[in-house]
Each structure stands twice: as C-alpha cells, then as structure tokens.
Amino acid sequence: MRVLVPVKRVPDPYGRVRLGPDGQILEHEIKWVINPFDEIALEEAVRMRERGAGVEILAVSIGPAVVEEQLRAALAMGADRAVLIQDDAPLDPSAAAHLLAALHRREQPGLVLMGKQAIDDDASQTGPMLAALLGLPQATFASRIEIAPDGTRARVVREVDAGRETLEVDLPAVITADLRLNEPRYVALPAIIRARAKPLDRVTAADLGGRPPARVEVLRLESPPPRKPGRRVASVDELISALREEARVI
C-alpha cells in the first residue's frame, strides 16, 4: 500500500517567533523543521512498514525549493520517495488541499497520513479539506490506528473533547495524527546519508493542473496585549487572602 505523507515546513515550535519593528516576522532567527504533527504521521507510516510488507511511503511538501530540506529530513526518517510541489505563490489550506488532491489522483495512495494541524497557522484544515475534495472518509486527531489485514479499512481512536472516540473508515481515507499517536524516532547519521540516494522529484503547480489563489489574506500581525505583572506570595495564607480580598475570585 502506498501511504502519502504531506509534511509542512514550519518554524521550530520551541523557538520564539518575533516581530520586527515593521510588524514582519523576523525570519532570520527561525530554525525551520518539519511540522511536529507531520513527523508523528511519518513515524506512524514507517512503523506500518516495519510491521508488514508492502508499504511504500511517499512524502510530499509544497513551496519554494528550500522546502527540499524538510523532504530530505523526511527521507532520512524513513520515507521511500519524496515529491516537492514547487509553488512560490502564497498558499492557504484550500490551495494546499487542491495541490495534494491532484497529486493523490496521480499517485493513488491507499492512505493519506498527515498532522492534524501545523504549529505556525494552527489552522487544522488541510486534512479534512483534502478528504472532501477527493470524496474520501476522514479520521482526524488520531491517537491509535489499526489497519485491517486486508487493507480495506482502518479502526481509528480519535482524541476529542469528550474523550476518545473510535471510528471505522474505509480505505483509501485521510487520517490526521494527534500528539499521542506515537513518539517519532531520532534520525541517526547513517539514515541521513542513505537518504541522499533516495528519489526526490519536483513537479510544479502547473504540472498538476494549477490551483486557486490563496483566499486568506493576513493584513497584520501583532503581539497580544501583555498581562499586568503579577506578584509573588510567600505562603498559602497570603495566596488565599489575595484571591479572596484582592482578586475577589473565591
């Protein structure tokens, strides 16, 4: 079974994204990584391959040539092939979903496994949009995935507001990965070196039939208003009195 794993290039979530005096993000400070949720999806695909024969993992990303860095990292993590959809124009989740849908029609994977959200825009849209464009079922926020031995369906446990929901989905489907699906492995140097020999193809948006322009426009970015500075309390007694008399919240 071919598993398609879209990965997104994002700023390291453990770094700080700061604005310069002109209100633009200070890009030179950023360390770029694969979106952590996409890493989890990729790890899951690698584990599927390790558990059974016949899984081929295709990693895909969208953007300018520099995105190849993340595709090389995906190959090092265990993807068999990678494709860069070269597209320099501004993207939004709809546009990304259109391009991924076109690639899906070309590659005919049995499963799409991707992160539930990207930690830069926190949109959490591309997976379900892709599923709808392809007319496929979806299972989002997956914390456990069991593929039936005949590969025709999957049982997925999802983390939802009320707890853990189990769905059964026919394959092909789109499944988005949540935090607790797995813990991605560290990539050792031999894997990084081997990855250089793995195929990384490039296609353009035009090759895939084009895509609509981005329809979400960011006018400006701001830091949220800071909270008023708080104070230390020296004891439980002082805390209780502050909450009761000062904040009047208990």
């Binding site: 939004d92 989740p93 709809s94 979903a97 825009d121 926190d122 949109a123 959490s124 849209q125 591309t126 997976g127 379900p128 949009m129 892709l130 599923a131 709808a132 464009l133 979806q138 989002t140 926020f141 999802r158 983390e159 939802v160 507001d161 329809r215 979400v216």
Partner: peptide, 22 residues
C-alpha cells in the same frame, strides 16, 4: 471544538469557501 475542527474544513471544501480557524 473538536466537532467544529473535524467538520468545518470539510464543509469549506464542499462549498469551495476559504476557512478561518479560531
């Protein structure tokens, strides 16, 4: 909510509309 995050992007794609989250 997880209800909205699961459902709305799918609705957006079916209606060919952009979506804003949160």
């Amino acid at each position: 909510s997880t209800f909205g995050r699961d459902l709305l992007p799918r609705v957006a794609a079916l209606l060919d509309l952009p979506m804003l989250s949160d």
